[in-house]
Write a protein that binds this DNA or RNA. Sequence first.
DNA 1: ATCTTAATTGACATAAAGTGTCAAAAATAA
DNA 2: TTATTTTTGACACTTTATGTCAATTAAGAT
Lengths: 108, 108
Amino acid sequence: MSIKMLSTNTVGEKLRNLREEQKLPLRKVAALLDIDVAILSKMERGERKITKEIVLKLANIYKYNADELLVSFLSDKILYEIQDEALGIEALKLAEERVKYMKGGDGE
Amino acid sequence: MSIKMLSTNTVGEKLRNLREEQKLPLRKVAALLDIDVAILSKMERGERKITKEIVLKLANIYKYNADELLVSFLSDKILYEIQDEALGIEALKLAEERVKYMKGGDGE
DNA sequence: ATCTTAATTGACATAAAGTGTCAAAAATAA
DNA sequence: TTATTTTTGACACTTTATGTCAATTAAGAT
């Protein structure tokens, strides 16, 4: 991953909105995360991969629902995989079935 | 990707089954694909990434439904992304909504 | 059992993708 | 304008992926 093109509502956008709502400059948040401002800037805009760890830390910093951000984060990664694929939806449905199956039977 | 652990019915397994049903040795199929036997062997067992291109070529070689294999291939990639994630199913559902939304609106 | 073919494994070199750091340029606010 | 924030790109470095090959292991035939 790392490039964007995931239409709207990426985790990056959500995280940027949260930060702006709280009037926090990249500088401060990056300091809290102990990463470079440039990286945080790129993460928010989808130019760099966001990690699960960063998402969780930001949920904590912004006092925002971590699960919602995680789901958004994961769905970004999923959407990235099926970009431009005509069979994307079928693949999603099959993946869903397989996940449920794994949980049900003595999975894996 | 590249490592396995995707439970059953990976594309790799399907491709191996197809090859064995037709009694074709790796050697011959690899030759048709113009790749090394070792690579094909690893692809079938999920040790190496399979590419969309290879999947399509194999569908053709085995005279098997290409879409089914592609969906299997894509769902492998999806499942890989949400491995061990408690919120995997939620992420899949959100991804599905987002795909539909993209197709509907003047999605980008 | 041997002989033969098929399949797997691991080492290696190379290529590609991702990462962190920094400074300069661009945008925004005061 | 000046000050601050944000974006951009270059760079060195690391990690991951890829292709090639040889050696090992497994399977089948006789």
